[in-house]
Design a protein around this nucleic acid. Sequence first.
DNA 1: CACCAGGCAAGTA
DNA 2: TACTTGCATGGT
Length: 214
Amino acid sequence: MSTRRRLQAIYDRLFEHFGSQRWWPAESAFEVMIGAVLTQNTNWRNVTVAIDRLRDGDFLRFERLAALAEMELAEMIRPSGYYNVKARRLLNLLQMINDLYGGDPEHLLADELETARERLLAVSGIGEETADSILLYAGNQPIFVVDAYTYRICSRHQLIDDECDYRSLQELFMDNLPCDTTLFNEYHALLVMAGKHYCKKNVPLCERCPLREV
DNA sequence: CACCAGGCAAGTA
DNA sequence: TACTTGCATGGT
């Protein structure tokens, strides 16, 4: 079967099993950006606690967050883990938005895709997955997000060489699917759901995995 | 107890 | 360039 059809089949199975996800779970694009940094190598549950703390202090707005001292911010986001590095990373991101977009996150998100991506990657603490998560889920731009679950699932289904780099795996999806923001949004979210529930680390096979026969 | 979670950068050889 | 280590909380 062609890669194109296999990717479509995987999507269909996951959609049938989990339904529409409509990510990212957040009340604003800015909140998505914050969450994208906080969730780096971290359980989403912990991230929601940190974000709720920011919300309670009305810090999910650019001006309010940018006015926080690094140590205060670190303390606020403590439940999300790596709180010192993440506080620095968030401030680095805000600094870039301030310098290049006049302090308006929407201007970054409205910029041309590759330009915005390069500028995000230039921020210390923002790598490819975080940048693409921001572009897709905060900016509604058509780019596919690759993460650890994407690697694991594609590897188990022998769609990739385990050593392939981020861009290669991203291209596998983007070259073989219609370029559609909503599709990319749903597909990545569904892969995360599948990974969480049925494709855990060091668990070779799962009886109830909806992708068993794909 | 060990292991994991929607990574990334810096250090080492 | 290729590999290792630090960062840290909270759930299973």
